[in-house]
Amino acid sequence: MGLLDKKYHDSNIIIVPLENALNWARKSSLWYEQFGLACCAIEMMATAASHYDFDRFGILPRSSPRQADVMIVAGTVTMKMASRIERLYEQMSEPRYVISMGSCSNSGGPYWEHGYHVLKGVDKVIPVDVYVPGCPPRPEALLEGFLKLQERITNETVVESKPDGK
């Protein structure tokens, strides 16, 4: 247990608002969909591999959208791919998040002007929570994107207040 080793007795009780506990749990196990599109996917792989190590944030790859919490749109989205991305997003279960990684999926990037077959920003088909700039973003930038997403999750309200205010 590292730092926490032998620091507490078994009779200790932690009191924490339910919402904080739920959000803490949710943000600490963000499973992302293992799904690469283009150049950014290579950086995404590098982030998941030995040097940068996604795992230490509880971020694990899942091969099916139905098991994933977050979709990283890593690369250029083309017109042919756009409808498939929409389908994959629909298959994910709530609550779901989208990280748009790199210039291409943010806005079309270098293919903005003459790319007849490139979608100019993935936010035209699915809602995006975090945009990570760069072409391609460094692994540190993608990690920063995840930290931003965690921040967002921490501030979310998942608990419904009672209608009569009690």
Partner: peptide, 11 residues
């Protein structure tokens, strides 16, 4: 194929 056709030749 063609899901990543980014129009290199046009560019």
């Amino acid at each position: 194929i063609g899901y990543l056709h980014r129009c290199f030749e046009k560019h």
